[in-house]
C-alpha cells in the first residue's frame, strides 16, 4: 500500500518509459495475431535479431566514417539501420512464402542464426567494443530512460502501422487465411504478404529499441495465443490481445518499479497472469449470463 503514493509521486520518472512500453505492447500484440495465426512466431525473434545487426552496423559504420555515433547523419542512425535490416529480412521471409521449396521455419531459423552470428562479429570489432554498453541498450531496450525523440518515433510508428492494418484488415486477413483463393480473385498475394511483413519489421525494430527483444517477442506471441484461446471471433481476438498486452505492460512495469524487478521480464511474466484474470472474468460473467 505504501508503494502506491511513491509510484504516483514518481510520475515524472515513469511517464515516458511506460508510454513507450504501452505503445510497444499495443503494436506488437496487434500484429502478433497474424504471426501466431500464420504459425511463424519465430519470425519476430529473427527480425528482432536482424534489427540488432542494423544497430551494431550503424555503430560500426559511424566509427569507420569517423563520426561520433550520436552526431551521425540520418542514414547512419541506429534506428534507421535497425529498420532497414529488419525490413530486408521481412522481405526475404515474405517472398519465400511465394516459392516454398524449403519449410518456412527452416528459412526463419537460418535467418535467426545468420543474424546472430553477424551481430557477434560486428560487436567484436575493436571499433565498436567501447560502445558495447550503449549498443546493448539499443539492442535490448532500456525501459527506464527514454529520450523524447524515441517517444515520438514510437507513437508515429504505432499510429501508422495500426492505421494501415485497420485500412487493409480485410485484405490482410484474406491473404493470410487463404492466399491461394485470394490469387484466384486477382490479389497479388506476394505483394500483400510483403506489405504485411514490412509492418512486422517496423513494429519489431522500433519496439525492440524501446523495450528490448524479450518483451517484444512476448507481446508478439503470448497475448495473441491467449486471445485465441479465449475467443472464437477474429475481431475479438485482436481486441483481447491488445487489452491483455496493454494491461501486462502497465502491470509489469508497476511490479518492476514496486519490487525492483527487471522491467522486460516483469512485463512478459504479467501476460499469462493478465490472460488468466481475463479468462476468470469471462468464466464468471459467462456463468452469470447463462
Amino acid at each position: 500500500m505504501d508503494a502506491a503514493p511513491s509510484f504516483l509521486d514518481s510520475y515524472f520518472l515513469w511517464r515516458d518509459p511506460l508510454a513507450v512500453a504501452a505503445m510497444a505492447a499495443v503494436l506488437c500484440s496487434f500484429v502478433g495475431v497474424y504471426i501466431v495465426l500464420r504459425r511463424i512466431v519465430f519470425v519476430s525473434a529473427a527480425l528482432s535479431q536482424m534489427s540488432g545487426v542494423g544497430v551494431a552496423t550503424a555503430f560500426w559504420l559511424a566509427s569507420v566514417a569517423g563520426v561520433e555515433p550520436h552526431r551521425a547523419p540520418w542514414y547512419l542512425h541506429p534506428l534507421w539501420l535497425a529498420f532497414l535490416f529488419a525490413a530486408a529480412g521481412a522481405a526475404a521471409f515474405s517472398l519465400h512464402l511465394a516459392r516454398r521449396r524449403i519449410a518456412a521455419e527452416t528459412v526463419v531459423g537460418a535467418g535467426y542464426l545468420l543474424a546472430g552470428a553477424a551481430m557477434i562479429l560486428v560487436l567484436n570489432s575493436p571499433r565498436v567494443t567501447q560502445e558495447t554498453h550503449e549498443v546493448n541498450d539499443l539492442l535490448y531496450g532500456n525501459a527506464v530512460a527514454v529520450p523524447p525523440e524515441q517517444l515520438w518515433i514510437m507513437a508515429a510508428c504505432t499510429v501508422a502501422v495500426l492505421a494501415l492494418h485497420l485500412l487493409l484488415y480485410k485484405d490482410f486477413v484474406f491473404v493470410s487465411f487463404d492466399g491461394e483463393m485470394a490469387r484466384t480473385l486477382g490479389y497479388r498475394a506476394w505483394w500483400w504478404n510483403f506489405v504485411l511483413f514490412e509492418t512486422f519489421a517496423l513494429a519489431i525494430s522500433v519496439s525492440t529499441r524501446a523495450v528490448g527483444a524479450l518483451p517484444v517477442f512476448g507481446f508478439m506471441v503470448l497475448p495473441a495465443a491467449a486471445a485465441l484461446l479465449l475467443s472464437a471471433r477474429l475481431w475479438q481476438v485482436f481486441a483481447l490481445a491488445v487489452i491483455i498486452a496493454l494491461a501486462s505492460a502497465v502491470g509489469g512495469y508497476y511490479a518492476s518499479f514496486r519490487w525492483s524487478l527487471p522491467t522486460g521480464a516483469s512485463m512478459v511474466v504479467a501476460i499469462p497472469v493478465v490472460a488468466g484474470a481475463v479468462a476468470a472474468l469471462r468464466l464468471v460473467f459467462g456463468r452469470r449470463a447463462s
Binding site: L37, R39, K170, D171, V173, F174, S176, F177, D178, M181, A182, L185, G186, Y187, L228, S231, A232, R233, L234, Q236, V237
Partner: peptide, 16 residues
C-alpha cells in the same frame, strides 16, 4: 486456426 464464422468465410468470395 483462424477464428472465422461460416458467413465471414463465404463473404470472402465477394472480395474479387
Amino acid at each position: 486456426s483462424f477464428p472465422l464464422t461460416a458467413l465471414e468465410i463465404a463473404t470472402m468470395g465477394r472480395y474479387g
